[in-house]
């Protein structure tokens, strides 16, 4: 059993990485009062940009991540101009961004359909990776997975321990009050939205350059939407987001190890599991209206103009 469990747990961490990046980005944006339903589109744009950068440079996967971040932020900028500067409906703009991202990434990506990239070798942390069980699970991962955990720590620290985190919260909870005491509400929301785009872009680039290092049309396959659901599940708390991402990473990876674990279900039904799990998790968390109302940024999704 253990020899099956170790690859499952190690794979879970890698499968959770794109969700951690995209989820953290969306969490920060939502904390500032902006709900961007374009995560799927930004991830796709990041994925194709990252793939292109990695394919055309010597940097490989590590050239892909900055390119993905930049492209994701650029995509978020379109959303921000429409929904923040022009006060258009955020839900509709996010949906448009997703539809646009699906089209744009398929259009650019058709040059790369038969390419494949070398990917990224796992980096065994010296000493730590020799610990039995924990070593191969936690400390024998690719660099980006470590980077994802570092990002979590960074976001947690900023939201929890810094003035910046408080300002973000003020802007999300009470933009009028934040504006009255002199904070640039729109600029802060722009920054949070662009951060969300960059993180989604990194998540997408990780998928196309490291996780499955080849380009497949629509390869993000709903992970952007799952990331949005995770933010709700997490009740806007980064630690719960991390746990949620691991849970979903585990459900995603299950289909590849089902046979070894003795689960006899058709492949397609196993593949549907993460999406079903998202519905179940959303239902479980949303039942508790009090919990959501307590944590929901009060101005989430409401256009604001000075």
């Amino acid at each position: 059993m253990l020899e099956h469990l170790i690859p499952v747990l190690a794979g879970t961490l890698a499968a959770a990485t794109p969700l951690i990046f995209a989820g953290l980005g969306e969490l920060v944006a939502e904390r500032s009062g902006v709900i961007n339903l374009g995560v799927e589109g930004m991830m796709l744009i990041g994925a194709v940009a990252g793939f292109a950068a990695a394919a055309h440079s010597d940097g490989g996967a590590l050239a892909g991540l900055p390119a993905g971040a930049f492209a994701g932020a650029l995509a978020a900028l379109i959303f921000a101009i429409l929904s923040l500067s022009m006060a258009a409906n955020q839900a509709a703009c996010g949906l448009a961004l997703t539809i646009f991202g699906i089209g744009l990434s398929a259009f650019i990506g058709q040059h790369y359909v038969s390419y494949s990239l070398p990917g990224l070798q796992p980096l065994a942390l010296p000493g730590l990776s020799d610990i039995p069980v924990l070593g191969p699970v936690l400390f024998h991962q690719d660099t980006v997975t470590y980077l994802g955990l570092l990002s979590f720590a960074g976001v947690w620290w900023v939201l929890r321990k810094t003035r910046l985190g408080l300002i973000l919260k003020a802007v999300g909870e009470a933009p009028d009050a934040a504006h009255a005491i002199g904070y640039p509400v729109i600029a802060i929301r722009y920054a949070a939205t662009l951060f969300g785009g960059a993180m989604a872009g990194i998540g997408g680039a990780y998928l196309s350059t490291v996780y499955t290092p080849l380009w497949v049309q629509n390869m993000v396959a709903g992970r952007g939407w799952i990331a949005i659901a995770l933010v709700v599940f997490a009740a806007w708390n980064p630690t719960r987001l991390l746990l949620g991402a691991w849970l979903f990473g585990g459900v995603t990876i299950l289909q590849f190890h089902a046979q070894g674990l003795g689960i006899a279900l058709p492949v397609q039904l196993l593949a549907a599991l993460p999406y079903l799990a998202t519905v179940v998790v959303l239902v479980l968390i949303s039942r508790d209206k009090r919990l959501l109302q307590l944590n929901l940024p009060a101005s989430l999704g409401k256009p604001w103009m000075p």
């Binding site: 429409l82 022009m86 258009a88 448009a96 539809i99 646009f100 089209g103 398929a106 259009f107 058709q110």
Partner: peptide, 21 residues
């Protein structure tokens, strides 16, 4: 590429939301 249809669809919706403002 056939994907150009999707690109046009996305642009159309974006411009529509912008004009709707």
């Amino acid at each position: 590429p056939a994907a150009i249809t999707g690109l046009f669809q996305g642009m159309l919706l974006f411009f529509l939301l912008g004009a709707d403002v």
